[in-house]
Amino acid sequence: MAKILNVRNLEKSYTSGTKKLQVLYDINFEVEAQKTFAIVGPSGSGKTTLLGLCAGLDRPDSGSIHLCNEELGKLSEDENAVLRNQKVGFIFQNFQLLPSLTALENIAVPLELQGDKGATRIGKELLEKVGLSNRAHHYPSQLSGGEQQRVALARAFSNRPSILFADEPTGNLDSETGEKVVSLLFELNKEAGTTLIIVTHDLELAKKTQQILRLKGGRIVENEKTW
């Protein structure tokens, strides 16, 4: 199976005042296409930083990241943005829906901006898949947290991404709602044949994936495959 993500010798630090804070040390791992993968670890272990680097949202101090057969460090900001638009999906803990757009518009508008003539049709189909056909014309403020995250799920799959990054997708949801969202996430992911990478502190969620990477203090302490 082809590698969709290959990370080699990754290091990342931030400068705070006069202090340099090292966040990630010599990170090496790879993810095969169409697999599910979790990054776990305590708060401050570098999980979200690693996710941002792998998705091309930030640049490392050193090391390389190959995503969808492209070396991110060799791409310009514009080329990086094109790669994300065409190949990558995102789900965030705080949903990040646009408040002035309805549920349907939140899904369809990104597709329309890419020139997809079937944007509204795709949006309606995805809303049906996440069980929200009857909420299509509601705004985020009129939706519960679970409903907002289901809209965010639909939006994440709208551009048929090769790889989907989910940062604490159940972090703001109660356990019952979180379980429903997770079931939907894995269901949609399997149907689409997408690679799924989840950052989570929820070990039960992590155990549903095929590979678990554990971070502690910015270093990999375990890389376990369950397939």
Rank of each mutant, 00 (worst) to 15 (best):
D167F: 08
T195Q: 00
K207T: 07
L203E: 15
G171F: 04
E176T: 11
G217F: 02
L215P: 05
A192N: 08
E168A: 05
P169N: 02
T209F: 14
L196W: 12
V199H: 12
I198S: 07
L203V: 10
G171S: 04
P169T: 01
A206K: 13
K208R: 15
G218C: 06
E204M: 10
A192E: 06
G218K: 04
A166T: 00
G218E: 06
I198V: 14
G171T: 03
D174I: 01
A166P: 01
E191P: 10
G217A: 03
K207E: 15
A166D: 00
I220Y: 01
E176P: 00
Q210L: 08
G217N: 09
I212T: 14
L215E: 08
A206P: 15
L213V: 02
Q210R: 11
S183T: 14
H201Y: 10
L205C: 07
I220W: 02
V181K: 07
R214A: 12
I197A: 04
T170I: 01
F165G: 10
N189T: 12
T195E: 00
F186R: 02
E191R: 14
L215G: 05
I220Q: 02
R214K: 13
K207R: 13
K190Q: 15
Q211P: 02
F165K: 14
K190F: 09
T209P: 14
E176N: 09
E168F: 07
D202P: 00
L173E: 10
F186P: 01
T200I: 07
R219Y: 02
G193I: 03
K190T: 12
L188N: 12
D202W: 06
G178C: 03
S175K: 13
T194Y: 04
K180N: 11
T170K: 00
L205T: 04
E168L: 04
E204R: 09
R219K: 15
G217P: 07
L185R: 04
L185K: 08
K207C: 03
F186T: 02
E187H: 06
L213M: 07
D167K: 10
Q210C: 02
F165H: 12
F165T: 12
S183P: 02
V199K: 11
